[in-house]
């Protein structure tokens, strides 16, 4: 009776089994890496805009406060994009012939809004309100990064659920005095080691409640 298995059959079986496990592990690792990659989170990916607006120039160079353009950030869920009127507050007099600003002038002339592309966006199942974060002293830079160093705007933080929860679980170290929220380079955290605790107490912030589902999903 001839042999059913060749001499190398055992080696082949072992190799196949090993390959199977390897492929499984590698695909798991790849999936995990992919989910956290900037390809999915968009971190650092510049978005093409109708006008190459530079936060570096306007915030870092000129020192405009965030609220000069994003005027509703303190009183509304939306930080709001500035109307063309706001751009033209200065650009009706400065850089009036610049080709790069032609879409802004056309927008004012035709009364048609500029078609800005959203950079910082959350999924539709997330509830987010700017005003409450500002009024409790969460600085802009905490989520939006150093926009004063971005010639073209890109997302600075991953905006994943993990990112939101990291802060909601332990908000204290992320907070600042209310009048310093729009500062990009503020570093006075260490002046008062009790500041975080005082801030939490003053506003009645309870980190254990901040991680309830309904806080962000409503």
């Amino acid at each position: 009776m001839p042999q059913i298995f060749t001499a190398s059959a055992d080696t082949r079986l072992r190799t196949a089994a090993l390959l199977l496990v390897a492929v499984f592990v590698v695909s798991l690792l790849f999936t995990a890496g992919f989910m956290n990659s900037t390809y999915l989170t968009s971190v650092g990916w510049v978005v093409t805009q109708p006008v190459p607006f530079s936060h570096e120039h306007h915030v870092g160079g000129l020192g405009l406060d965030c609220r000069y353009c994003h005027a509703s950030v303190e009183v509304s869920a939306q930080a709001s994009l500035p109307a063309t009127h706001v751009c033209m507050t200065c650009h009706s007099q400065i850089w009036t012939g610049a080709p790069v600003l032609a879409p802004v002038r056309a927008s004012l002339a035709d009364n048609k809004p500029l078609h800005w592309q959203r950079v910082a966006r959350l999924p539709d199942y997330v509830y987010f309100n700017h005003s409450i974060h500002i009024s409790r002293g969460v600085p802009c830079v905490e989520c939006h990064g150093r926009v004063d160093r971005m010639p073209l705007l890109a997302r600075a933080k991953p905006f994943t659920m993990e990112f939101c929860l990291d802060c909601h679980r332990d908000p204290g170290p992320h907070l600042r005095p209310r009048d310093q929220v729009t500062r990009m380079d503020w570093s006075g955290w260490h002046e008062d080691p009790q500041f975080a605790r005082k801030q939490l107490q003053a506003f009645g912030i309870q980190p254990d409640k901040l991680t309830n589902c309904y806080i962000c999903h409503r």
């Binding site: 869920a77 939306q78 709001s80 994009l81 809004p113 959203r118 966006r121 999924p123 539709d124 199942y125």
Partner: peptide
């Protein structure tokens, strides 16, 4: 459900 059939701001 990242994009639900409603308008976001602007």
């Amino acid at each position: 459900m990242r994009h639900q059939p409603r308008y976001d701001y602007a």
